[in-house]
C-alpha cells in the first residue's frame, strides 16, 4: 500500500499542483512583480521600483481612509455577526418546534450573491431614508451602517450553521456530568459549551475577519464608495485606483500587495490566538 502510494504520488498530486501553479501561484507572483512596475497591459511593464508604494500612501490619503473605514467595519461586524449567530445557534439547538425551518430561513440570505444583495438593500435603505429626505449615499455614515446591516443579514445564517454543528458535538456525558454537579445553565455555557466549540469559534472568527476585509461586491453595489470615496473599503479603493486613472495600474497593484500582507498577517495572528484556546474533550 505504502509503496503503491509512493509510486503514484506524483501522478495524483500533479493535476492539483498544476492547477495551483497556473491559477494561483503564477498570477500571485506576476502580481507582486507588477506592483513594482508601470504598465497598461501585463506584457509592457516597465520597472519603477518602490515608486508605486510611495504613491499608494500619499494621494490625498484615501487609502488610509479606506483602511480606517474597513478596520471599524471589521471590528463591528466580527462582534455582531458572531455574537448574534452564536445566540441563534444556542436557541436552535434546544428541542423546540420548527428549528429546522428557522435554520433554513436564517441560512437563506447567504445564497444570494453580493451584488444582488447590495442593490436590494440599496432600495430598502433608500426607502427608509426617504422619510428623512436622505439617500444611502448622502453621507458615509449611512453607507457604513447600511453595510453593517447588510453583512450581518448575509453572514449570520452561515456562521450559525457552523456553531450549531459545534454545539451538537458537545459530548452529552460532559453536559450530564455538569448537571449532576449542579451547574447552572450559565455555568454550563461558560465552562462546558464554549470551550468545547472553540474550534468553531476559530473558524467563524477567521471567516468573518477575512470576509470583512475583503468585502467588495456588497460595497460596490450598495454605495460604490459614494459620497466621493468616503464609503469605499480597501478592495473597492484598490479597484478604483487600478481602473480610475490611466497609468495608475501599478499603484493599484502595490495597494493590493499591501492589502494581501495586511489581511494575511491579521488572519494568521487571529488563528494563532484562538487555536491556543482550543481544548480536547
Amino acid at each position: 500500500m505504502q509503496k503503491a502510494l509512493k509510486k503514484y504520488a506524483a501522478f495524483f498530486t500533479l493535476p492539483t499542483l498544476l492547477a495551483f501553479a497556473v491559477a494561483f501561484l503564477a498570477p500571485f507572483l506576476i502580481g507582486i512583480y507588477l506592483s513594482f512596475t508601470k504598465f497598461s497591459t501585463i506584457t509592457d511593464a516597465q520597472w519603477v521600483g518602490f515608486g508605486n508604494y510611495a504613491k499608494a500612501f500619499e494621494q490625498g490619503g484615501d487609502f488610509l481612509h479606506s483602511l480606517g473605514f474597513t478596520a471599524c467595519f471589521a471590528a463591528i461586524t466580527i462582534v455582531s455577526i458572531n455574537g448574534i449567530a452564536f445566540l441563534f445557534a444556542l436557541m436552535l439547538t434546544r428541542k423546540l418546534r420548527g428549528t429546522n425551518f428557522f435554520r433554513t430561513v436564517f441560512f437563506m440570505p447567504n445564497l444570494i450573491g453580493g451584488i444582488v444583495l447590495g442593490y436590494i438593500w440599496q432600495l430598502i435603505l433608500n426607502g427608509v431614508l426617504y422619510h428623512v429626505g436622505q439617500t444611502v449615499i448622502s453621507d458615509a455614515t449611512y453607507g457604513f451602517w447600511g453595510l453593517v446591516v447588510l453583512v450581518n443579514w448575509q453572514m449570520i445564517g452561515y456562521m450559525m450553521v457552523i456553531y450549531i454543528a459545534g454545539i451538537q458535538n458537545v459530548p452529552q456525558d460532559l453536559l450530564d456530568a455538569a448537571a449532576v454537579d449542579g451547574a447552572s445553565s450559565g455555568q454550563v455555557l461558560r465552562h462546558v459549551t464554549i470551550p468545547m466549540v472553540m474550534p468553531s469559534i476559530t473558524i467563524c472568527l477567521f471567516l468573518t475577519l477575512t470576509n470583512s476585509f475583503r468585502l467588495f461586491d456588497q460595497n460596490l453595489a450598495l454605495t460604490g464608495g459614494q459620497p466621493g470615496k468616503d464609503s469605499a473599503m480597501l478592495a473597492l479603493n484598490i479597484y478604483q485606483t487600478f481602473y480610475g486613472t490611466p497609468g495608475y495600474e501599478g499603484v493599484g497593484q502595490a495597494k493590493a500587495v499591501v492589502f494581501f500582507l495586511l489581511v494575511a498577517g491579521i488572519a494568521l495572528l487571529q488563528l494563532r490566538l484562538t487555536k491556543r484556546k482550543e481544548v480536547e474533550a
Binding site: 440599496q122 433608500n126 426617504y130 429626505g133 436622505q134 439617500t135 444611502v136 449615499i137 448622502s138 459614494q226 459620497p227
Partner: peptide
C-alpha cells in the same frame, strides 16, 4: 424629485 433624494 426633491433635491435631497436625487442620490437615489
Amino acid at each position: 424629485t426633491r433635491k435631497t433624494l436625487l442620490g437615489g
